[in-house]
Design a protein around this nucleic acid. Structure first.
Lengths: 137, 137
DNA sequence: ATCCTACGATAGACACTGTCTAAGTCAAGA
DNA sequence: TCTTGACTTAGACAGTGTCTATCGTAGGAT
């Protein structure tokens, strides 16, 4: 079930109850949670888990590429466990929920060399914004 | 010279010294400042301007579409006065500086209806990330 | 030119998000 | 079982943004 947990173990992570819970919370969700939301859900299973541990664990998962950090507003970052399939995000401008979407074509191709100003461009993030069906009602 | 100021006046804005200074700071910069950076520069010209006023004024400019809010990391939002010409952003993943770029084509077209999930999609933000020439050296 | 009044500005408290530190705990190899 | 260093913890701290109550003033009315 928990591929994420399995991959972390393979990387030599020390398996603590806290890390297990954080991985499970991420794995079980299709929405993109903020760090404090992850903490809230983790607390339901492991009441004494601290905020710092959740932040640390998420940060480590991001730095090894198992989880993607999404900053769509200037507020809390959100964490996306779907790091292995390239995708972009569709954000509701009212309620802030995020959906994964898969646009056609390679967005990198749209930026000609003359517009790269010597940058070694490596990634593109595309954020579509609009009003979701629930908020439009 | 300050087109921004002129447009605000046309919208019936009460012209206060504070709003004038905020508009001038934005207009004179080609970089994208954070709210607190705007405040710092505004303070040089109008020492008693408050942080709340800068935040309010920036927020109002964003809501009427004269300025664009850019959240490239999970930290401070940056404010882009170049709202009249559609463009995207190229961010250095080392030093964080932002350049305006103009990709080809309409990025909205890449998202087929089947991938919109009932959202009324209105805007797209594209953020290219890479290492700038200065940081690559 | 002066007066009025509603809109804008102010200071500072507050809230949210994230980071850091010092001390205690425990997973896992010896 | 023992040992060790990686991990966790509580809580202080820092950066960013919001809110409230009060004061000031731009600009129309007189």
């Amino acid at each position: 079930m928990s591929d994420l947990l399995e991959r972390l173990r393979e990387r030599g992570w020390r398996m603590t109850a806290q890390r297990r819970v954080v991985a499970e919370v991420l794995d079980g969700q299709h929405v993109h949670l903020t760090a404090d939301e992850v903490h809230a859900r983790a607390t339901e299973r492991l009441p004494e888990i601290s905020r710092a541990t959740v932040y640390n664990t998420l940060g480590e998962m991001v730095s090894i590429g198992e989880v993607i950090e999404v900053a769509t507003d200037g507020r809390a970052k959100r964490y996306d466990p779907n790091a292995h399939r390239p995708h972009q995000h569709l954000v509701c401008s009212r309620c802030g929920t995020i959906r994964d979407v898969h646009p056609q074509g390679d967005p990198l191709a749209a930026l000609p060399a003359s517009e790269r100003f010597g940058f070694a461009v490596s990634t593109v993030e595309v954020t579509y914004r609009g009003v979701c069906p629930d908020c439009a009602a």
